[in-house]
Design a protein around this nucleic acid. Structure first.
Lengths: 212, 212
DNA sequence: TTTTAAAATGACAACTTGTCATATTATGTT
DNA sequence: AACATAATATGACAAGTTGTCATTTTAAAA
């Protein structure tokens, strides 16, 4: 986390540093980016940098937090629009989300982020459902907006687990999209195919005794 | 890929280098590991290193290829043992595979690999089904050993896509296991839960008209 | 024995990073 | 205004990194 000193900075200087960092992180992934370049880009002395951030990662995760799509609301709206239907809601959400990432002005930054995403980065990208859930807000809770009637889900926790898993799958799919240089549309379709697999299963359901 | 010079080396020297590299990569992830340490560990001159490998990554990917579980046969045997049943076969395979990774002598190496796995590393870990498939061997083909009768799968390609997806999901789960410091058993169960989701779906199947 | 090819070596330039004593600029306080 | 004090800025620096390359050593061939 950046120090208080960083937030005390004049907006001009703070933005200058952020822009200089984004330039570097858009050109190179975390492990290749250098602080030397960032301070050169933003015309800030090396010593100052270390007064604001602990190290390169500290700055990087701050930027991820700043520019990532906070998809909680995006999900909420998508599920509401599709009247709580799991498959349709998630499909709509994923389409919007993929577009946000892949058509963003910050394309280079996100591209490097996804291509070098590991578990630590993955965690930073994800939003904490649990946190949002316990802290009462005026907004509706995500899990209340999803219709569970036609899902094989017993507890709220299981639904949360599934949501978390779907999100990490979505991120994996975007990673694959960047790697294979897929278009937005192709990436969306790749995800939708997987969404279908998981939602409806790949096994043909056995005919229930009672129905025969 | 290592140069020919590397393979011309005496076995003693080659093993010395591999051991020195494994020591470093077991202690530190790829981006923190240093060539300086590796050449120190293996008592090889810096110049020689660059005669064998292009850079650190070149060596790293060679080691992954050397020590990764070539799971093609493991899958084949698992599916054969379970008479081609998708769910049971994959379950058995995943249990063996997780155990191989997490109880290996190379634990530190694998741990760092999984915790810092990105798409590039992920690709190196995966076996190329397509390659194995076209090259005719005396072994049975994996896709022939899986019973497709009770799967919603039309083409061989779709089955391959699903297999690839399940494998990357398995690797993700192992990554999560390392991150959360889960036991072998817990990691296996986490995967099995997801395997169940995807195989049978999370949606309750609608009753077919014909059956009512 | 001489020639030629292959492999080994460590000094080196050009880069990193994080630290720290010092200089500069604000913000109070008599 | 003059002083004290806290906050911020600075760049030189040690200690590390990487990849190269002219040179030496070793092996193979003529």
């Amino acid at each position: 986390m950046p120090t208080q000193t960083f937030f005390n900075l004049s907006e001009e200087k703070r933005e200058r540093l952020i822009a200089g960092a984004m330039k570097e992180f858009s050109a190179k992934p975390l492990n290749e980016a250098s602080i030397s370049n960032i301070v050169k880009n933003s015309e800030i002395s090396r010593g100052s940098f270390y007064q604001y951030f602990e190290d390169k990662k500290d700055l990087y995760f701050f930027l991820i937090g700043k520019f990532r799509c906070n998809y909680h609301n995006l999900m909420l709206k998508s599920f509401q629009e599709k009247k709580g239907d799991f498959y349709e809601g998630f499909k709509l959400f994923s389409e919007k989300y993929v577009m946000y990432i892949m058509e963003s002005k910050k394309f280079g930054f996100f591209e490097n982020m996804y291509l070098h995403m590991n578990y630590q980065i993955n965690r930073e990208v994800r939003v904490d459902f649990k946190g949002k859930q316990t802290r009462p807000t005026k907004d509706e809770r995500l899990i209340d907006v999803i219709n569970r009637d036609n899902l094989k889900i017993d507890s709220e926790n299981e639904l949360l687990d599934i949501l978390k898993y779907f999100l990490s799958m979505l991120n994996d799919t975007i990673m694959e999209g960047f790697w294979k240089e897929l278009s937005v549309k192709e990436t969306q379709n790749l995800f939708i195919k997987r969404l279908e697999w998981i939602t409806y299963g790949i096994a043909i359901p056995e005919k229930k005794e009672g129905n025969v």
